[in-house]
Design a protein around this nucleic acid. Sequence first.
RNA 1: GGGCGUGUAGCUCAGUUGGUUAGAGCGCAGCCCUGAUAAGGCUGAGGUCCCUGGUUCGAUUCCAGGCACGCCCA
Length: 1042
Amino acid sequence: MFKPISNRVNLPKVEEEMLSFWKDNQTFKASLDIRRDGPEFVFYDGPPFATGLPHYGHLLAGTIKDIIPRYQTMRGYFVDRRFGWDCHGLPVECEVEKMLEISGKTEIEELGVDVFNEKCRSIVLRYTAEWEKTVTRMGRWVDFERDYKTMDPSFMESIWWVFNELWDKGLIYEGRKILPCCPRCSTPLSNFETNQGYMDVVDPAVTIGFRLDDEENAFVLAWTTTPWTLPSNMALAMGPDITYLRVEEKDVVYYVAKARFDEYYKDTDSVESITEVKGSDLIGKTYEPLFPYFADLKEKGAFRILAGDFVTTEDGTGTVHMAPGFGEDDYALCMAEGVPVVCPVDEEGQFTEEVSDYVGRKVKESDKDIIKRLKVEGKLIKQATIKHSYPHCWRCDTALIYRGISTWFVNVEKVKVRMSEVNQEIHWMPDHLRDGRFGKWLEGARDWAISRNRYWGTPLPIWRSEDGKEAICVGSIEELEKLSGRKVADLHKHFIDDIEIPSQEGRGPLRRVTEVLDCWFESGSMPYAQTHYPFENKEHFDSHFPADFIAEGLDQTRGWFYTLTVLSTALFDRPAFKNVIVNGLILAADGKKMSKRLSNYPDPKLLIDTYGADAIRLYMINSAVVHGENLRFTEDGVKQLLRNILIPLWNSYSFFVTYANIDDWSPDKLDGQSSNVLDRWISSSLETLSESVVAAMDEYNLQRAVRPFVLFIDDLTNWYIRRSRRRFWKSQDDDDKMQAYQTLYTVLLQLSKIAAPFVPFISEEIYRNLRTDDMPESVHLCDFPMPQDDKRDMELELEMELVMTVVRLGRLLRSEHNLKVRQPLSQIHVISRNKQVIERLKVLSDIVLEELNVKDVVFGEDELRLATLKGKADFKRLGPRLGPNVKKAAGVIAQLDDQALETLVRGGEISVAIAGDEVTLGPADVLVERIPHEGLVVASEGELLVALETELSAELVAEGLAREFVNKVQNMRKSSGLEVTQRINIKFTGDVELCKAISDLGDYVKLETLTIDCKSVEAAPQGAIEWDLNGHACLISVDAVV
RNA sequence: GGGCGUGUAGCUCAGUUGGUUAGAGCGCAGCCCUGAUAAGGCUGAGGUCCCUGGUUCGAUUCCAGGCACGCCCA
């Protein structure tokens, strides 16, 4: 006896039951244990930040990260799955700043780095419980107990090892990076933060004349909105291809871009002559420094005109003032050209001693004085203001300044080529990412800035002397202890910043540089750090690197995929993963990004509780989002999927259980293979399903893996079960019935296994109810059903397809000619020239008879009786052979007469004249269509012709009535809530013809409706319902037999 | 501005190693079936396969150039 199943399915409730079952029985652990001795399939999990709650993107990635490991487990592999948490970094720090209502470097240091960091530590895991709940509810099996955290001392120590390896390979260097900084918070900001704070402001826009050295009283005009950077001017940049004008006035010469001339000369009275000059002719000239502060740098290459490809003539003068300490383009160009870089501004945005006249003053506030001074000195050409969008600190609204910050870099340029080569070994899904977005990103990779002037992160393990001439990179806790003579328990900043290392060269104590590492460096180190390599688990690591599989979103091309690749290439000259599934973005139903503010998407929890995790999983997986495309997530889509796949699947299961229980069927009655064609057909189809799924899964193509389920479920419910229903209903326990049970049982059981990785809940429910005691207690402990050739019968699958076609054509005819299926017809003609087609159909003709409700099927070959033939050229064959003449040939073929076509159809050859040439055409060169004769009830598809005999004999009419009658009684049984097995008595009224029909076919009526007594009465019985049976009025009442 | 991707029915999307007749689901209209029925089936209407050029006997498919949208970078 199987557990009885309601056909009113509540999937979320079923899922909750499965969750408790898994929890109570530790099924996940068991699924690992049974494979522990098997080969390993290595999975790396990318760590999320737990500062927010999981959203649809996480549910999707989590689902992909669940399906592949479940599948591989069933394929016999041991798949360890450790969850990871990204703990460090700015999001956490910002959160804490908000909580403590402080902001920026000064306030954090006033508070104490130790207090601040411990606060970070205390909140970073605060949502992990919610995460675990949601991830688990979605059906993902992942180990939360052995999770890794990027803030664990062991994790951080491995990061030091990674860093030290890079250091030893000479891949770490210190440089400068121009970053937006808030002078008030004295903190550099990330791109993300900067983007939040753009505001429209009015700034000064001044034009300055730079006096050229080699021409008397000649000035190049340059333009800036940040006058405070002028003392730090080191060069000018012009466009080599831009045309400039040499404008001669009375006793002075100005150079300005031709395109900007009008802006500067509203009237040209003062102009004496104008000459055009190419930018390239001006490049290389030197000029007089504006300010004396760095004048001595002229010898070192400063104060030159450089060629800059970023120079435009959209605004300004067509010449850009270069302050390499304060602009990214400026910095890059000056570095490349060997121009010295100065940055005379401190963290608080104040001038340093070098700029003696303004020392200690905030740069922005010095603008006015600088302008005034330039005016006095005659260097200011034009003073204006400009309204533009400029970034401000999102915390305190202070205008940001761009400023060079000392930064540590990984020299990615050095390993770039190998990274691209190593990338070739990775199997990407979708594959275009390999040489597309990711490949291109690698080709253009720049050195990676890995240090952050922040607090909550893994500190850079560099200790150096005050003069900067002696530096040590520390690679482990033990090394630090040895070098410093101090015990070290925690590697966070506030534990180690006061540790000093004595100099080997007598330079005084070495102190740690202040920065911490970019948290991307930490997640990229995850393959090593999660197992504390190389301090522990050395052998384990060797056999677990690289990963067989990872999966994340498209945004990780420049994130995790990239950092993993940089580090694994630099360290081991290998990729860090072999296969990767990259998912696209999940958009709201309106095609926009999901946004809390717009609330344009349904709450995930609500959706799970309404439709269940399986439906959401399958909905997402059955879309292009599993290969990097966007998905418009709609609740309706989830509903559809439920309707199209999961409910039919459940109905099949419920059907089986209901009848198996009625008949007391149990799996111990399993006995060999069935001889029934339907059974053999569905069993064969199941093998085909398994083959398609395995093929798609081995390519990591999840969408392709899901698609065949839709077809199979349709075959199962709308053909196999519908066709087989009577076999389950009939009262005697014959072999055929046993075989039906046995087949449906086996199919459902196997299907639950094939579906298990995708829809782990519903498949578990089905499996658990169907399994016998000698089977594993969970579907997820089973082996994946690999396709078995001996159970496949391709011939039979083809035959069934033909039958389906005939039935479809038959139904089309009935529909076109208004002949309802309940009305039996005498004959159907199935005509095909192709003997094999006829032979195949003969095998299954019973199905045709029943489906179409006809008494007899007549096969024949004489298609000309029903249709005319029409020839059509097979371009695919004739094109290559005939080339340009193919069109003429098509014309000739379309005109072929019946006789010629007959010859071809019989397999003969004909010869025709095409463009003066004799061409021989074989059967394969011409496609023959059958055009049914007008006025006949005939339909055609391919080589098949189907015709219906529509004349009704008295017997057929009577039978049609009886079937109408049965149908109405069945409806009444159902609507009055009678049990399926309940016996009844029928009373009815009707005309003579109707009574005779029911009486003549009484046995049939009684058998179909489980009726003991069916009699006609004179007057309408109590509670009778009136029906119209093919134009015969009728009152029927139904009573349960007690 | 550059890179990558996408553009197919009213909507959401398959597909096309180049072959004249391009599919599914939803929605719409009509019909049918039904003891797995909170279902299901069939039929119909609905398409310049983004545009323009090229290659080819033949292009929705390949190539080039545009346009639109998305993501990433600058």
